[in-house]
């Protein structure tokens, strides 16, 4: 049909880059918390060097994360409204409580860990794991409940967010491991065994993440017309480069290949890969948040 649109009003930005930053920071926090519980809850002794920096970073990042929300908000002085006027059907309302409880739990957990009180550290860790999953999982619900945008409103979104959170958490722990070994030990020796174990963990988690992204794309492409629009937008539109090249190819496939080749087990290569993964996950958050709302709905 010979049709064309000659006048429409452009959409205002809704969730901008600050929400992407916020999602990224909560993801890093949840990922590093889960890694720090590997020793004190699950008893894997080889992860001992990561336990303390993990919990410190988890608490710090989660104190930092709501700052991005305050910058984003139009009326930051009214943030107390979130705790007084509660709407149970809104994921943001759940989030205001999760964002309060989770840093407190991680601080208490960290306190017992630094006191070497293993019993209580384990108990607080067991309480902390579900709250870490909740504090990041709810951000997935924030997007999947907003039914206006086809890219966001998928049931897979909370799971996709959790898996990418764990990926970015592990990548951050690899960098922490290198810094810790190089600057904070007497022998200046990096714990390469731990580095390679983390790399091995990443292989499987990245494969799972790629599988989830694949499911999402396939379901969108064969779904309704807005889903098809989303796939076209993410593949050939403005976000084609960021999604296909930066997020999937460089951010996930390249590290996956590098980690699977035993010959390339070198500290420098692993460090570069960890930095690339962290940037890649940030681009993923940006693609989902900004890319999702970039598609016009009216």
């Amino acid at each position: 049909m010979d049709t064309m649109l000659i006048y429409n009003v452009p959409m205002q930005e809704t969730f901008g880059v600050w929400i992407a930053v916020y999602f990224y920071l909560t993801g890093l926090s949840a990922g590093s918390f889960i890694l720090s519980t590997l020793r004190y809850v699950f008893g894997f002794e080889q992860f001992k060097p990561l336990a303390k920096p993990g919990v410190v970073l988890a608490a710090l990042l989660l104190i930092l994360a709501p700052m991005a929300l305050l910058i984003h908000s139009g009326q930051p002085m009214r943030a107390w409204h979130l705790f007084v006027f509660i709407n149970p059907s809104s994921p943001l309302s759940w989030g205001s409580f999760l964002l309060t409880i989770y840093p407190i739990i991680s601080v208490i957990y960290g306190y017992f860990m630094f006191k070497e009180n293993k019993k209580w550290a384990k108990i607080m860790g067991i309480i902390g794991i579900p709250s870490a999953i909740a504090v990041h999982g709810y951000t997935g619900f924030v997007l999947s409940v907003a039914k206006a945008r086809a890219l966001w409103a998928t049931p897979i979104m909370p799971l996709l967010f959790l898996i990418s959170a764990i990926i970015s958490g592990i990548a951050m722990m690899m960098i922490v491991n290198v810094i810790q070994g190089y600057f904070f030990t007497k022998e200046r020796k990096i714990n390469t065994d731990l580095l390679f174990i983390l790399g091995k963990m990443l292989i499987w988690i990245i494969i799972f993440d790629l599988f989830l992204v694949f499911c999402d794309i396939i379901a969108h492409y064969t779904g309704h017309k807005e889903g098809i629009e989303v796939v076209k937008h993410m593949f050939t539109g403005t976000f084609g480069f960021l999604f296909l090249f930066a997020e999937v190819l460089v951010g996930k496939v390249v590290p996956l290949v590098v980690f699977s080749v035993p010959k390339w087990r070198k500290t420098s290569i692993y460090l570069i890969m960890a930095i690339i993964i962290m940037i890649g996950i940030f681009i993923m958050r940006y693609n989902v948040v900004v890319g999702g709302e970039h598609i016009p709905i009216v």
């Binding site: 205002q12 139009g74 009326q75 930051p76 809104s90 409940v145 206006a148 709905i297």
Partner: peptide, 27 residues
């Protein structure tokens, strides 16, 4: 007087019919 300007409603509205007031910071 209650809106905190989080813009979640703007993101969720299927019709895109809300706007943020840049002077007041509310939707």
């Amino acid at each position: 007087h209650r809106c905190i300007g989080c813009r979640y409603c703007m993101a969720a509205c299927p019709y895109g019919m809300r706007h943020v007031n840049p002077l007041l910071g509310i939707v």
